[in-house]
Nucleic acid binder design. Sequence first.
RNA 1: GGUGAGGUGGCCGAGUGGCCGAAGGCGCUCCCCUGCUAAGGGAGUAUGGGGUUUGUAGCCCCAUCGAGGGUUCAAAUCCCUCCUUCACCGCCA
Length: 428
Amino acid sequence: MLDPKFLRGDLNEVAAKLASRGYELDVEKLHTLENQRKELQVRTENLQAERNSRSKSIGAAAKRGEDIAPLRAEMNKFGEELDAAKEQLTALMTELNELSLSIPNLPHESVPVGKDETENLEIRRWGEPKAYDFEVKDHVDLGEALGGLDFPAAVKITGSRFIVMQGQIARMHRALAQFMLDLHTTEHGYTEMYVPYLVNADSLYGTGQLPKFGGDLFHTQPATEEGQGLSLIPTAEVPLTNMSRDTIYAESDLPIKMTAHTPCFRSEAGSYGRDTRGLIRQHQFDKVEMVQLVHPEKSFAALDELTGHAEAVLQKLGLPYRVMALCTGDMGFGATKTFDLEVWLPAQNTYREISSCSNVGDFQARRLQARFRPEGAKKPELIHTLNGSGLAVGRTLVAVLENYQLADGRIEVPAALVPYMGGLTHLG
RNA sequence: GGUGAGGUGGCCGAGUGGCCGAAGGCGCUCCCCUGCUAAGGGAGUAUGGGGUUUGUAGCCCCAUCGAGGGUUCAAAUCCCUCCUUCACCGCCA
């Protein structure tokens, strides 16, 4: 959510920034609603103030033993006027609120302007893609040949875009997550968290999945008038970032750095008809997520740091990658700035996204009412939130299988992973 | 799942219809006193929103006593629903 003050002043500048990310702000409508809001709110509050003072004098009159019946009759009429004003105000505020909850964040000035992923900007590369003197296979062929990836079994049990892993590959999948968690907790200063995989609607509003992106999620129960059922998390960003909801931190508490390994569930994953083969796009996948809650002046430095933490995983695994600055048109709803990490996949002969690290600024914090009290100041201020994958475990497995394949179909275990594989140096 | 008792400010805790945004205590901040420490005295100390203002401060107003609805001229207080905490019982990994 943007600062409501932005939406009360000159909207054109805001609208221009939003247009750069492909969002058309209805300036006219917002302007009208805002003017109505102001008028209605002032009127309603004045009526309430009058009701309060009249009620007080009725109480005082009753105490003196006066006849209060006529005063009450008058108040009944007054009450109708107040109720009508309240009702109008509530309806208007609901509309205004829904509108402002659906407006994406403003991109930072350093973000390249562009319409889609073709205009993302490459920042740097790390590592050299290996040269293979044999025909490389993709992870599906490699995994099936090793008996470790079983797509038909997943289809039988659940449906498409799920996976059954077994044996050494299942173990490597687990080893990757363990390795990432250990790296972030022992070398990068994150606190390991275990969190719920089902969350309530408040949490989804807090991080911005609702009200706009409910269709991307799996919901355990249909919504009722009573409220929403619980939903499966699309990323651990949701539970982790919601730790800060309705919290006022001491300045010295910041930064707070949390990491968690969770499954993630996304219902939209199959809708593009892209990556229909393999593990790249699944309804259920594991991810190690990093979340930082930071002082607002430090969030861009924290973004560089957090991106570096995700890169460290790839470097230690010896996987070539490049860092992309997403352009305005390709960034997520809440981000002010995002770096994607793309890992080299030899079978596709290209780089594919494996991590996305974003500075969300105060956008989520405002929805979450996540604040801190600056030293010496009495007013709490909004914190900034950041999140990044460190990394998507399934895609990391894909990258390891493909990059470390040998001519005979076996897979070399990256050195950093060997201790996590009980000393195993090759799969197969 | 059953029964019972609760949910009030940073914390503890009073408050069964108006004088309550809320006693008292603790904590914290500032000031005074004090050779240091300890003790003492005084003042202050929730959050969100709106109006006023170029902006801040200030001032005024509204809302908030787990959440939502209701009764009433008036609700922390009465009624209903839900959430949640604790205790005991049942069940379970």
